[in-house]
Design a protein around this nucleic acid. Structure first.
Length: 863
DNA sequence: GCAAGGTC
């Protein structure tokens, strides 16, 4: 018999709370966890049961490639199309999977309260995976609740009508994830590597491609091209003027405009010869402007951009905050229709005490508010409405302006339509027809709370049919057709919505992406002006494969996965089929990329002409150029190699030291900010693929416990590729730091590769690599008074054998001061080879009487 | 360093 414990899981904490509150009628206890767990007792399918309601935070997992496919240098993007993919926790720190697993223990039933859309269905199966339930296990049943609002009544109804989760819909999402990942990453890696390896002033961290972001950019560039290719044409129009009731009035020509000046002049002659206008018709028409329907995300974003000047990203951040603080309802919704149970009176009442619109609200409450427009119900969340009364002081200026709009829009939806009378007066003169129109508002309706939508009053003088009026003048207007303006953000949002690019939650992300990657810039009036990079990219796709930047690419994917969702096609086959097509497109793109490159060549500077000489390449020993424009990197013109550097750091030469592993000159990278650390860096090591056995150290580097170590991804230490190496440790406190004279200590993690770490200024000093043992002596350097180091190059273990090579020198001055030490019968004899006191360069490094000699020019760096 | 989709 199944346990009578029931676990219920929602998509976000707020929904879990609503469900628990409604089903327990407030009689519940709440426990903290990765997400809150609400518990109560009640009836489940006719039995007494203990309920636990908790939630995930969106998707539990996201897809990625395995580690072996992560290295851009090693993996051919073409291989990504048929590479395996892995699902990993989206937010490992939140431990959602562990949380669900723990809560599911001892539960006999799992009820899935994920949002009722495809993504929600997919998350259902993520939850099933975490909880260890199985859809086919009769003893531990899995149920799906289908609900369209979190009102008690609807939730009860869903509880009484539990169904099974829909695997086809979930698989459709799996298909989309895999296709988006593979296509996006393959194209992005290829074009980033290709173009950044050739040009120095693209000024973007990455040259990305995506089936949503690229068509989004396409819209902006399309408008740009319309503007630049626009050929203005001259046109002419007749504009007669009359004076009526003391007002001068310009009349509009029925022919609007003509593109032939001679013909227009001919009409002008006819009109002027006549000189008298006759009123031929006066018509009045009742017009109506509809109140808005409920506010959904896309419309909020459009108004925020065009009316409030907030970009979509910012608007969503503000809305999110208003939502979590309880001022507005959930801000991500497609629906514009209110649920039938919506409490309009209650919502109006909470706005009534706000002086900003108290009169309007009172009017609505007293005179009866209108039923809103029907709108569309996408079955997700109700439209965005106010939930609490607020003041500007409480919210802050920006959040208040957005909140104010949500309130005004809500009031607008329950206000009357705006009514006005349009008057049209027609005139004839010399066989030509003209008119003028006037507008008079009879019912302000919703425009009183949304004044920016008000119909403009336009008064006309009184006319009588048949009346004859003299034309005061007949102007020959000369105009010129003008190109459209740049696309506004608001227009772009409409285009994206219309073409099914992105969702309410992801539209702001895509727009942000194309701005952040320097494909477009937002200019005054939130107009989107493509940069030369954005234009060149789109023109490039257009000349190789226009499909790549057209919105149809998204609809194609959507239409294919819809077949999976409907159970008409097998998910594996659809993925393979779609990837096959994209792989072909990819291969063709790679083959034809030179055509696109021709456009880049005309627009950007080659790497060889970019940047300034900074440090020497370890391969050809020539200077490489430092390109400070993002992504910052070094370029060796001789080897034609690019070496990426940490982004955001300032880079300079590091004491002309070279990396002992590869001979590349070391750089000092200083991270910004007061806490920003400086660390030396070898450009070659930094760009090398990870080595085997790095796991433990990789973990340490990632958690920051060895903060100064190399780049995060797979390279725990830029000088220490062999973390399993177990060289003996040097004693601490060896010598003065060359930067600040502080004490140098050995970083235990870097020990195997012989680095000293200054605990005062955070710099690192490199010691001879390849040594078996390094230790301090009691002797001090005659120049800088640091303790001298003894460096043992004997590869064998101690005790030292005969003929071992032991060097003693000063790391600070980078000189070998003693001769090698000769071992005889386990006893060492040291010989002095250098005396700095005798003058530089004389007799330095010259061993006496003990076999090998140290080259006079030799220093620690020679190791 | 890469996509798009959830949500915070």
């Amino acid at each position: 018999m199944a346990s009578s414990k029931v676990l219920m899981v929602a998509e976000k904490p707020s929904i879990a709370l609503s469900i628990a509150s409604a089903l327990s009628r407030g009689q519940m206890s709440t426990r903290k966890g990765s997400t809150d767990v609400h518990e109560f007792d009640g009836m489940f399918r006719g039995f007494h049961a203990h309920f636990k309601v908790t939630s995930v935070i969106g998707h539990v997992f996201s897809v990625d490639f395995p580690v072996t496919y992560q290295d851009w240098k090693v993996t051919d993007p073409l291989d990504l199309f048929y590479a395996p993919i892995i699902k990993a926790e989206s937010n490992p720190k939140a431990h959602i999977c562990r949380h669900l697993n723990q809560e599911a223990r001892g539960c006999g039933h799992l009820v899935l309260w994920l949002d009722c859309d495809r993504e929600g269905e997919n998350i259902c199966f993520e939850v099933i995976e975490c909880t260890g339930f199985h859809t086919r296990d009769a003893s531990r049943r899995v149920y799906r609740a289908r609900f369209s609002s979190v009102i008690g009544k609807d939730l009860m109804k869903a509880m009484d009508n539990l169904v099974e989760p829909n695997r086809d819909e979930a698989l459709a999402v799996d298909a989309r994830q895999e296709i988006d990942l593979k296509v996006g990453v393959a194209f992005t890696r290829f074009q980033t590597t290709y173009f950044q390896g050739k040009y120095g002033n693209l000024d973007s961290r990455v040259i990305s491609y995506g089936p949503c972001q690229t068509p989004t950019l396409g819209f902006c560039v399309q408008r740009y091209l319309q503007i630049t290719t626009f050929k203005p044409e001259k046109f002419w129009a007749l504009r007669p003027y009359i004076i009526q009731d003391g007002y001068e009035l310009q009349l509009e020509w029925e022919r609007n405009k003509l593109f032939d000046v001679d013909v227009t002049i001919m009409f002008q002659k006819l009109v002027m010869e006549d000189g008298i206008l006759e009123v031929t018709e006066i018509s009045e028409k009742q017009e109506s402007k509809s109140r808005p329907s409920g506010l959904n995300t896309v419309n909020l974003l459009k108004v925020a951009s065009s009316g409030l000047g907030f970009g979509p990203q910012m608007a969503m951040q503000l809305a999110e905050r208003l939502y979590t603080q309880g001022f507005i309802s959930y801000p991500r919704t497609e629906s514009t229709a209110y649920p039938s149970s919506f409490d309009f009176r209650g919502t109006l009442a909470l706005l009534a005490n706000n002086p900003a619109w108290a009169n309007d609200v009172q009017g609505l409450l007293n005179n009866g508010f209108h039923k809103p427009q029907s709108g569309t119900d996408a079955g997700d969340h109700p439209p965005i409405t106010p939930m609490l009364s607020a003041t500007e002081d409480r919210l802050g200026k920006d959040a208040w302006r957005l909140y104010q709009y949500v309130c005004q829009h809500f009031m607008g939806t329950v206000s009357p339509d705006c009514k006005y009378v349009r008057t049209n007066v027609k005139f004839s003169i010399g066989g030509e027809f003209f008119h003028c129109t006037g507008q008079h508002v009879t019912v302000e309706g919703f425009t009183s709370v949304m004044p920016w939508l008000a119909v403009k009053e336009k008064n006309l003088p009184r006319f009588i049919k048949g009346e004859k009026i003299e034309a005061s003048k007949v102007e020959l207007y000369e105009g010129s057709t003008a190109p459209p303006d740049y696309l506004t953000e608001s227009e772009l949002i409409s285009l994206m919505e219309k073409n099914g690019i992105g969702t309410d939650a992801s539209i702001p992300v895509h727009i942000n992406n194309i701005c952040e990657r320097n494909y477009v810039q937002v200019q005054a009036g939130r107009k989107l002006v493509p940069t030369s990079l954005g234009i060149t990219l789109i023109r490039g796709y257009q000349c190789i494969d226009p499909d790549l930047c057209l919105p149809d690419i998204r609809s194609f994917i959507e239409q294919q996965i819809a077949l999976v969702a409907k159970g008409q096609m097998d998910h594996i086959h659809v993925v393979l089929h779609v990837l096959q097509q994209f792989k072909q497109k990819y291969a063709y793109f790679v083959k034809q990329v030179e055509n696109m490159d021709a456009l880049f060549e005309a627009q950007f500077s080659p790497l060889a002409d970019s940047g300034r000489a900074l440090s020497k390449c370890g391969k050809c020993l020539r200077y490489m150029k430092y390109i400070s424009m993002q992504p910052s990197r070094l370029y060796c013109g001789t080897c034609e190699e690019v070496y990426y550097l940490p982004q955001n750091g300032t880079i300079k030469l590091y004491k002309e030291l070279s990396c002992p592993l590869d001979n590349f000159e070391l750089l000092l990278c200083s991270m910004p900010g007061p806490e920003g650390k400086s660390f030396p860096l070898c450009p070659y090591c930094y760009n090398s693929p990870p080595f085997e056995g790095v796991d433990t150290l990789f973990g340490a580097a990632k958690t920051g416990s060895t903060g100064k170590l190399g780049k995060g991804a797979g390279m725990p230490c830029f000088l220490c590729p062999h973390p399993t190496c177990r060289h003996s440790l040097i004693s601490q406190g060896v010598c003065a730091c060359p930067e600040c004279s502080g004490t140098l200590v050995l970083d235990p993690v870097s020990a195997p590769k012989w680095r000293l770490d200054c605990n005062m200024c955070n710099c690192l000093v490199f010691l001879p690599q390849g040594a078996h043992r390094i230790s301090t002596t009691e002797e001090r350097c005659p120049d800088c008074d640091s303790k001298l180091l003894e460096v043992d190059f004997n590869k064998k273990t101690t005790p030292l054998e005969d003929g071992a090579t032991l060097y003693v020198g000063c790391i600070i001055c980078d000189e070998l001061l003693h001769s090698l030490v000769e071992m005889k019968h386990g006893k060492s004899f040291s010989r002095r080879t250098s005396s700095r006191g005798r003058g530089r360069g004389t007799g330095r490094g010259r061993g006496r009487g003990s076999g090998k000699r140290i080259d006079p020019k030799m220093s620690f760096r020679d190791f």
